[in-house]
Amino acid sequence: MSIDGVAIDWLNFTPWSSLAGGALIGLAASLFVLFNGRIAGISGLLGSVLEGGEGRAEKGLFLLGLLLAPLLWGLFSVLPTIEFQSGWLGLLVAGLLVGVGTRYGSGCTSGHGVCGVSRLSPRSLVATFTFMAAGFVTVFVLRHLLGG
């Protein structure tokens, strides 16, 4: 742990691919709102499809596209590294919390963090601040207070 401020991990810092990936995410969210009139919030779309809400076909197709992305990527290139840090119990607990939390909170990193913050929605600004803070604190507790 660094005492005097934040130590940047320059080895793993990927500014250009992260900016470009972010721009693509922004482009996808733009297309969805410009053509379909909908917010690209993944937890909301998924919850709505599960509940059998309005616009199931369009929402389902967006989610299908998301599912197909790694397969399409794999046709042209090797998939980027995907490395997990948790065992099955951690994944189970994390998944449950993410499922329940995003539905009660009306959104996640995409709906609040990208679309809502872009619109300067007060609810999304508060939600994004809250889940980022909770994420920072959780990692601090798990890695630096309990783990080590």
Partner: peptide, 21 residues
């Protein structure tokens, strides 16, 4: 609900590093 839900989501996100998208 907005704040409580986001808090719970953030904890889950911090455990595994995975969000819905």
């Amino acid at each position: 609900r907005l704040i409580g839900g986001s808090l719970v989501f953030g904890i889950g996100w911090g455990i595994a590093g995975i969000c819905p998208g």
